[in-house]
Design a protein around this nucleic acid. Structure first.
Length: 223
DNA sequence: GAGACAATAT
DNA sequence: GATATTGTCT
């Protein structure tokens, strides 16, 4: 029993990565975030840029301008433009709030699960997730919430192995073919846009409600 | 600086 | 309500 078996912590990073790669979701499961996630028609209908995201706000604005400058309407267009015009010219703008889509979260869970309790820290997670624009702080915030969730589930506490069955993230089959995937529109100070009627637009909605996989205390909402 | 965690802000 | 930020501690 005293052999030099694998001390999980001493396994080389490379091995970890290899293992990680093998365990990752399939290509169909993982749509690159830099890829267009909504149909062009729909994007155009909502005046949403389909270009790669997580670019600078300025670039994004430019894109939006260009892609909607072909229209010749007056009032209606202005109204739509107003929603996008909410980014102040001078004030230092921040990144758009990250939307934890099912895909993102799955990836997060994958990485966290494979890293194991000890190594699942923001810095490492962000590296392994390898998602453009994703910051350590994004992870930290999400991780904090995720831990609370896991704790509440009581589904853990014992194991500390990297292969922790800990996270039985259960994607609802429905969500697989849910057509609308919210594209995080960066740099706008917010993401997504209201369409049609609605009240305040602090946190814009899609006409279609995205059912994210957030962690909720106190029970399942699967049905 | 990095991380955990709670509290608070947006 | 979800995510970001801040404060405090290790």
């Amino acid at each position: 029993m005293e052999r030099a078996h694998h001390h999980q912590q001493q396994i080389s990073y490379r091995d970890r990565v290899l293992e990680w790669e093998m365990g990752l979701p399939s290509a169909e499961d993982l749509t690159p975030l830099t890829q267009t996630l909504i149909p062009p028609e729909l994007a155009s209908a909502f005046s949403i840029s389909t270009e790669p995201l997580y670019r600078s706000p300025i670039e994004l604005r430019r894109s939006l301008r260009l892609s909607s400058s072909s229209s010749s309407s007056s009032d209606e267009e202005e109204e739509e433009m107003r929603d996008q015009e909410q980014v102040p010219e001078n004030s230092a703008r921040k990144r758009a709030r990250l939307v934890w889509t099912a895909q993102l979260h799955r990836r997060f869970v994958e990485v966290v699960g494979r890293l194991g309790i000890k190594d699942a820290v923001p810095k490492t997670i962000v590296q392994l997730m390898n998602v453009e624009g994703l910051t350590r702080e994004n992870i930290a915030s999400h991780l904090q919430k995720y831990r609370l969730y896991v704790k509440r589930q009581g589904g853990d506490g014992s194991p500390s192995s990297p292969a922790d069955p800990l996270f039985e993230y259960s994607p609802t089959p429905q969500q697989q073919h849910r057509q609308m995937v919210p594209v995080p529109v960066s740099g706008m100070g917010q993401y997504g846009y209201r369409h049609g009627t609605g009240g305040s637009s602090y946190q814009g909605n899609w006409g279609y409600r995205y059912h994210g996989n957030d962690f909720q205390a106190g029970g399942n909402r699967f049905g």
